[in-house]
Simulated scan of single mutants.
Amino acid sequence: MTQPSEPAGGVPTCYRHPDRETYIRCQRCDRPICPDCMRDAAVGFHCPECVAEAARTTRQARTAYGGLRPGNAAITSMVLIGVNLAVFVLVLGSGGSGGELFRELVLRPAGFCAGAFGVPEGQCGPTWVPGVADGAYWQLLTSTFLHTRLLHLGFNMLALYWLGPQLELLLGRVRFLALYLLSGLTGSAVVYWAAPEYQATLGASGSIYGLFGAMLVVAYKIGGQVQQILVLIGVNLFITFAIPGISWQGHLGGLLGGAAIAAILVYAPRGPRRTAFQTGGLLAIALLTAIAIIARTAVLA
């Protein structure tokens, strides 16, 4: 720690800028500081070193379930909304559902030769449409950010805007993001197993239903209005099964996955081992999902 010097006149100088005279001192260490080194504090000013030390030693606030409390609980949801919007624009700009980008991102269990089912990939040429069973495993996740209709995108993003900040405030940013992505992946895994081999599936609905499932678990844990959430889920499931063309597989898989993930996060025992328990539980879900995906690939091979 450096000591301030005092010129012959007895006027102290800033400990970081010895050529600057000052009469202001840091409220923590009592060293002279110039205007450029002053940092506002509850009482008076602090020097940069004391501010940095306080930041290192101050324990960050935690959410109810162990995550770091976000300063703005809407940021992650807005970033996810931005990613979905960006993918929507990119796909439209590359030819929509008939473009090559769409074919690479959409989820199809098995690939096929467009216009001629059963033709091997090597004999198909540029008309080959890849599927997960052919090695396009990225489709299991990229399809959860893919939309081709504005109404579909709008409903999903509205639900994310409504549910996301509430869950992030309870879980923390990292846990919320894990919930969103893993729910989408479990939804895609159920699609991979239960949807027709050549059917295209897309949309963030699996992740959104995962948020519905998480809200139900959290509400039950804290003694909230479970009935209202059950009604909301029931209405959405009715629409899922009543209207043709909606992927019930993705919705149901996301709902069950989100509920399981939330149960691990909110029922983890309190204490220093809670984060380890939560991490292990999420890894177990990811591993089981990966095993299910590999098993389905073996069946389709």
Rank of each mutant, 00 (worst) to 15 (best):
L68K: 08
S97K: 04
V43H: 07
P12A: 13
L167T: 00
W193L: 13
F45P: 00
I208R: 03
T127D: 13
D40C: 07
Q227S: 15
I285D: 01
G253R: 01
Y180G: 01
G250C: 09
M78T: 04
F277I: 15
V132K: 01
A55M: 15
F212R: 03
A200V: 08
F176N: 00
Q166Y: 09
A116E: 03
V299M: 11
P165H: 03
G206P: 05
R59C: 05
I285S: 03
A116G: 03
Q3I: 10
I293P: 02
F176S: 01
V79F: 02
S207I: 06
A194N: 12
I208V: 15
G9Q: 14
L92Q: 09
N84W: 00
F277K: 05
G66L: 01
Y65W: 12
Y180P: 00
L163G: 03
W248S: 15
L140T: 03
R20L: 07
T289S: 06
G44T: 13
D30P: 15
G257N: 10
Y137R: 08
L101S: 07
A298R: 11
L151M: 12
F117Q: 05
D19T: 11
Q227N: 12
L141Q: 02
N84E: 00
C113I: 10
L252S: 07
I293L: 09
G224W: 11
